[in-house]
Design a protein around this nucleic acid. Structure first.
Length: 886
RNA sequence: GCCCGGAUGGUGGAAUCGGUAGACACGCAGGACUUAAAAUCCUGUGGCCAGUUAAACGGCUGUGCGGGUUCAAGUCCCGCUCCGGGUACCA
C-alpha cells in the first residue's frame, strides 16, 4: 500500500481531537504520574521555527511512552504571550496587542496540532488572559507580603515580622519604613539601563557586553527611575543548595552556581585618616592585609565625595563623569588599560596602622561586595597591574611555593604577582599583635578572620554575585502591578477580591518620553479614591515577561480554577515537573527566577515541593548550512548551486565553502516546519528532528536527511501494510532476537532521551524484516507499538489496518525477554599487543585456560607469536582477547 | 581575560562501564528495472600500500595537536590549538 501521509495524518489528528484521546484526568488512584513539560513558546508573528518541534517532539515521545507504561501523564501547552513585538506592532498600526497575540497563538496552535503532539488542549493557557494573570498578580502580592527570616532561612508572612522596640517607639511612619525595608518586593530609585530606541528600562541581564540592548541592539544609557525590585539575593543560599538535589545537566547546574556566585571571606573596616568615616571592604583574602598598600573605591561609592580633598576635586569629578558615560563593555574590557584617580585621602591599615592612599577606579564596581576594595598588588593580578601603572608600592607578603628560583626572586622583590599558596612573610606587627608568618593560605585566612573578629575590625562574610531583580517595565503589554501609590506616600496592594486588575483599553500605545509606561495615558484607570476620600494613582509600570513564565507549570495543573490558583490536592499529586525540556538560553535567568518564586511559594505553604523542575534537559540549537566565498563573504542560499557535491555562486561561478550558521533571513536559510510537513509529513519531520543527532547537540538542518527518514517510514509502511508479508504461527529465531533487542534498545534510549540511536535501532529491525520478507502478526504489532511514540500517525494507521479499532496510544509498552537475547557463543576479536589480528568464535561458557589454549594453538597465531611464548593473555569474557608478546 | 561546552570518513552522527573505531542515515560510485526519468532494489564506499586469473583476503595507518598511564585509550591524566556559547575585571 502506498504511504499517503497527508491523508493518514489528517485522519488521525481529527480522531485524536474528536475523541479527546489525550485528555488528562486527575486520577489520584494511579500513583504513577508523569508531568512532562515544554518551555512554552512566545507566539511570534513569524510562526513556528524548526527549533520548536525539536523539544516538543522529544517531550511528546516521552509522554506517549509513559502513557503506554501505565503512567498518568500531564503534557500541556500554552503561550507566553506578553512581549515587545505585539506592543511595537500596536504602536505602528494601532492594533490592540491582544488581537495580534490571538492571531499568532492561532497560527502556533494550528502548526503544533499538525505535528501530532499529544497535548491535552483543554489545559491550554495564555499568560495574557486576565484569568491567568490574575494569579500572577496574586503571587506578586504574596511576594510583596513576605519577608525573609534569616535565622529560619525561609520566607514568612510580613504579619509575622518582629518590629524592634526602637522602631516601634519612633512611630507609625518608621514602622512602615521598617516593614517596607524587609519585603521581598520593594519600590525604590534604581540606576537602570535605558534603551532610547525601545524607550524601556533594561535589566542588567538584558544588556549585552557591548552595551547594547539584547532585544533591539541599540546602545543603552544610564538613568535613575523608580522601580520595583525583588530581593532574590536573600534566597541565594537556598537556590544554591537546591541545585544539588536536581537531575539537571552538570553544565547548567554549574552555570547557575556561578551566577549565584557564592564566595567566602571577610569584611574589614579601614578607618579614614583625620575622619570619623571608615571604609568597609569585602575580601576573599583577608590573610593578605599586610600587603594592602592602597584602597580603591568605585566611582559610585557614597564616600567618594567626602573623601575627595579640595585639591583633587576637579580631577575626581572629571573621572567620575567619564566613568558614568562608559558602557559596561568599556569599563570591563580587559585589553583596555586600567584608569583611576587619587582621592587625596588616606586610610589606616588595621593590621599595621600604616597610612595607605585611597584611589577611585572604575574596575571596582558598586554592585558587588561593598563597592570598595583593599588592593594587594603583590597577590592580585588586577591590583598588580594598577599599582604598576600608578607607581604604587608592591609589598610581597608570601614566600611562594615554587621550585623556580628565578620566579621566586621576582615575586619576593615585587616584580611578579603571586596568587597561589606559600608561606607568609612580613605579616606580623607588635603593636596590633597579629602574626601569621610561616602559615599557609588556609591557616592564614582562618587566623586573620579570628583576629579581626576579636578586635571588632571585621567579620567573616559570605558574599554573592546575585543581585536584586529589577522587576518592572515601562510597557503596556504586560501584567499591571496590583499596586496603588497614595498621595500621602503610602503604597498599598490590591485585595485578592479586586483581582484581576485588567489592562485598560488605550487609544495610543506610545510610551511617554519621560520613561513612563503608556498606561500613564489611561487617566480614568489610573486615578483612584479610597473610602476616606484619599486620592491615589495606580502603578503604571507592568511586570516583565518573566512573571508569567515563572509559575505557568503550576497553572497547568488546574487551569480553569476560578476560586484558587489551583486545587492543593491536584498540586500535591502532579508536582514536581518530572521532565522539563527547553533551550539552553534559559539556563540561568528563567530557571533561576522560576525557582526563586517557587521557593517563596513553598515557604508560604502554597506549593508542596521545594523545587519545581526535578529533571531538566536542554535541547541544542538547530543551525543551517550557509555558504561563503574564499574570503569569508556570506552568500544567500538562493544564490548557490550544487554540482557534484560542490557549491558554486549562481552568478559569478566562484566555488563556495559550505559552513554551518544560525538560520537567518539575510542568509535565506530559514527552514519552515510547514514546508517540511507538506513535503514529507509530520511523522517525517518528527523523526528527522530526533534522528539528526543527540538532543543536546547543536546541529545543522539538512533537507537530505529528512528524505532519509521519509524513506524509512515509506519502507515501514509498505512492508507492514502488505498482508502477504504478515504471517501467523512461529516467528523466525533471528527476527525474534532482533525484535527483543529493538524493544530493549528503544525503551532504554527513550528513558535516557537518546532518540537518535532509538530510531537507528528501528531502522535496523525494518532492514532485517524486509530482507526476511515475512514476519508474524505478533512481531508486526509489537514493532508498531514501539514505533508509535515516534511516528504516531503512521503507527495508528498500521494498528488500524491490523484490525484494531481503538487508539494505539494506551496499548501497553512491549516487554522484552532476556531469554531471547542470550548468546551461547561469541566471536572474539583476538589481538596481539593491542592490535586486532583475527576473530575466533568460542562458547561463552569456555573458561580462560581453554580459551588461551585455543588461541595459542590457532594456526593464525603462529605469525604473531613468532616462536615466542605469550607473556600474558588477557581474556575479557564476551569482549576481547589480547595476547601480550614481548 | 574568566566560565561552560565541543573537535570522530565527503556529510549528520554511533561506539552507554577503558575492550573489534566508523552502527544508522545522507552523499557518491557501479549495477538491476525502465524507451527515458523518477521511485524502488542490489553492491561498494576512512586513507595509504601490496599481491593473485579472480575472489575470499593481507599489511600499514587513522578519532584536532604534543606527551603520559595501561595488556588495551575516541574514552582516563597533563600540556596546547582551534571552534561554539555565556560573561558582571566579582575583590
Amino acid at each position: 500500500m502506498e504511504y499517503k501521509f497527508r491523508e493518514i495524518e489528517k485522519k488521525w489528528q481529527k480522531y485524536w481531537e474528536d475523541n479527546k484521546t489525550f485528555k488528562t484526568f486527575d486520577d489520584f488512584s494511579n500513583p504513577k504520574k508523569f508531568y512532562v513539560l515544554d518551555m512554552f513558546p512566545y507566539p511570534s508573528g513569524a510562526g513556528l521555527h524548526v527549533g520548536h518541534p525539536e523539544g516538543y517532539t522529544a517531550t511528546d515521545i516521552v509522554a506517549r511512552y509513559k502513557r503506554m507504561k501505565g503512567y498518568n501523564v500531564l503534557h500541556p501547552m500554552g503561550w507566553d504571550a506578553f512581549g515587545l513585538p505585539a506592543e511595537q506592532y500596536a504602536i505602528q498600526t494601532g492594533t490592540h496587542p491582544a488581537i495580534t497575540t490571538k492571531k499568532n497563538c492561532d497560527t502556533f496552535r494550528r502548526q503544533i496540532k499538525e505535528l501530532g503532539l499529544s497535548y491535552d488542549w483543554d489545559r491550554e493557557i495564555n499568560t495574557t488572559d486576565p484569568e491567568y494573570y490574575k494569579w500572577t498578580q496574586w503571587i506578586f502580592i504574596k511576594i510583596y507580603n513576605t519577608w525573609f527570616d534569616e535565622k529560619a532561612g525561609k520566607g514568612r508572612p510580613i504579619s509575622e515580622l518582629p518590629i524592634p522596640e526602637e522602631v516601634k517607639n519612633a512611630g507609625p511612619e518608621a514602622i512602615r519604613k521598617y516593614i517596607d525595608s524587609k519585603r521581598l518586593a520593594y519600590y525604590d530609585d534604581a540606576q537602570v539601563w535605558w534603551c532610547p530606541e525601545c524607550k524601556i528600562v533594561c535589566a542588567n541581564e538584558e544588556v549585552l557586553s557591548d552595551g547594547s540592548h539584547e532585544k533591539c541592539g541599540n546602545l543603552v544609557e544610564k538613568r535613575k527611575l523608580k522601580q520595583w525590585m525583588l530581593r532574590i539575593p536573600l534566597y541565594a543560599e537556598r537556590l544554591l543548595q537546591g541545585i544539588e538535589s536536581l537531575d539537571w545537566p552538570e553544565g547548567i547546574k554549574e552555570m547557575q552556581r556561578n551566577w549565584i556566585g557564592r564566595s567566602t571571606g571577610a569584611e574589614v573596616d579601614f578607618p579614614v585618616e583625620n575622619s570619623d568615616e571608615k571604609i568597609t571592604v569585602f575580601t576573599t583574602r583577608p590573610d593578605t592585609l599586610f600587603g594592602a598598600t592602597y584602597m580603591v573605591l568605585s566611582p559610585e561609592h557614597p564616600l567618594v565625595e567626602k573623601l575627595t580633598t579640595p585639591s583633587r576635586k576637579s580631577e575626581v569629578e572629571e573621572y567620575i563623569k567619564a566613568a558614568s558615560l562608559k558602557s559596561d563593555l568599556e569599563r570591563t574590557d580587559l585589553s583596555k588599560e586600567k584608569t583611576g584617580v587619587f582621592s587625596g585621602s588616606y586610610a589606616i591599615n588595621p593590621v599595621n596602622l600604616q597610612k595607605i592612599p585611597v584611589w577611585i577606579a572604575d574596575y571596582v564596581l558598586m554592585g558587588y561586595g561593598t563597592g570598595a576594595i583593599m588592593a594587594v598588588p603583590a597577590h592580585d593580578t588586577r591590583d598588580f597591574e594598577f599599582a604598576q601603572k600608578f607607581n604604587l608600592p608592591i609589598v610581597c607578603i608570601m614566600d611562594p611555593d615554587t621550585s623556580d628560583a628565578e620566579q621566586r626572586k621576582r615575586v619576593l622583590e615585587g616584580h611578579e604577582c603571586w596568587t597561589e599558596d606559600g608561606r607568609y612573610i612580613n605579616s606580623a606587627d607588635k603593636t596590633t599583635g597579629i602574626d601569621i608568618n610561616g602559615l599557609n593560605k588556609e591557616a592564614g585566612i582562618a587566623k586573620m578572620i579570628a583576629w579581626l573578629e576579636e578586635k571588632k575590625l571585621g567579620r567573616a562574610k559570605v558574599n554573592y554575585k546575585l543581585r536584586d531583580w529589577l522587576f518592572s517595565r515601562q510597557r503596556y503589554w504586560g501584567e499591571p502591578f496590583p499596586v496603588i501609590h497614595w498621595e500621602d506616600g503610602e503604597i498599598t496592594v490590591l485585595d485578592e477580591k479586586e483581582l484581576p486588575l485588567e489592562l485598560p483599553p488605550l487609544e495610543k500605545y506610545q510610551p511617554g518620553e519621560s520613561g513612563e509606561s503608556p498606561l500613564a495615558n489611561a487617566t480614568d484607570w489610573i486615578t483612584v479614591t479610597d473610602a476616606r476620600g484619599r486620592k491615589g494613582r495606580r502603578e503604571t509600570n507592568t511586570m516583565p515577561q518573566w512573571a508569567g513564565s515563572c509559575w505557568y507549570y503550576l497553572r497547568f495543573i488546574d487551569p480553569k480554577n476560578k476560586e484558587a490558583i489551583f486545587d492543593p490536592a491536584k498540586e500535591k499529586y502532579w508536582m514536581p515537573v518530572d521532565l522539563y525540556i527547553g533551550g539552553a538560553e534559559h539556563a540561568v535567568l528563567h530557571l533561576l527566577y522560576s525557582r526563586f518564586w517557587h521557593k517563596v511559594l513553598y515557604d508560604l505553604g502554597i506549593v508542596s515541593t521545594d523545587e519545581p523542575y526535578q529533571k531538566l534537559f536542554n535541547q541544542g540549537m538547530i543551525l543551517a548550512y550557509a555558504y561563503e566565498t574564499d574570503k569569508g563573504a556570506k552568500i544567500a542560499s538562493d544564490m548557490v548551486v550544487e554540482k557534484e557535491g560542490k557549491y558554486f555562486h549562481k552568478e559569478t561561478g566562484e566555488e563556495l565553502r559550505q559552513i554551518v550558521a544560525k538560520m537567518s533571513k539575510t542568509l535565506k536559510n530559514v527552514v519552515n516546519p510547514d514546508d517540511v510537513v507538506k513535503k514529507y509529513g509530520a511523522d517525517s519531520l518528527r523523526l528527522y528532528e530526533m534522528f539528526m543527532g543527540p538532543l543536546e547537540a547543536t546541529k545543522p538542518w539538512d533537507d537530505k536527511g529528512v528524505k532519509g527518514v521519509f524513506g524509512f517510514l515509506n519502507k515501514t509502511f509498505r512492508f507492514l501494510s502488505e498482508k502477504n508479508n504478515i504471517t501467523e504461527g512461529e516467528e523466525d529465531s533471528e527476527v525474534i532476537k532482533a525484535l527483543h533487542q529493538t524493544i530493549k534498545k528503544v525503551g532504554n534510549d527513550i528513558e535516557n532521551l537518546r532518540f537518535n540511536t532509538a530510531i537507528s535501532a528501528m531502522m535496523i529491525f525494518i532492514n532485517l524484516a524486509t530482507k526476511k520478507g515475512k514476519i508474524t502478526r505478533r512481531t508486526a504489532e509489537t514493532f508498531i507499538k514501539i514505533l508509535s511514540p515516534f511516528a504516531p500517525h503512521l503507527a495508528e494507521e498500521l494498528w488500524n489496518l491490523a484490525g484494531h479499532n481503538k487508539t494505539i496510544a494506551y496499548e501497553p509498552w512491549p516487554e522484552y525477554n532476556e531469554e531471547y537475547l542470550k548468546e551461547d557463543t561469541f566471536e572474539y576479536p583476538v589481538s596481539f599487543n593491542g592490535k586486532l589480528r583475527f576473530k575466533l568464535e568460542l562458547p561463552l561458557s569456555m573458561d580462560k585456560e581453554e580459551i588461551v589454549d585455543r588461541v595459542v594453538s590457532d594456526p593464525r597465531s603462529a605469525k604473531w607469536l613468532s616462536g615466542k611464548k605469550p607473556e600474558n593473555v588477557i581474556v575479557v569474557p564476551g569482549k576481547i582477547i589480547n595476547v601480550v608478546v614481548r
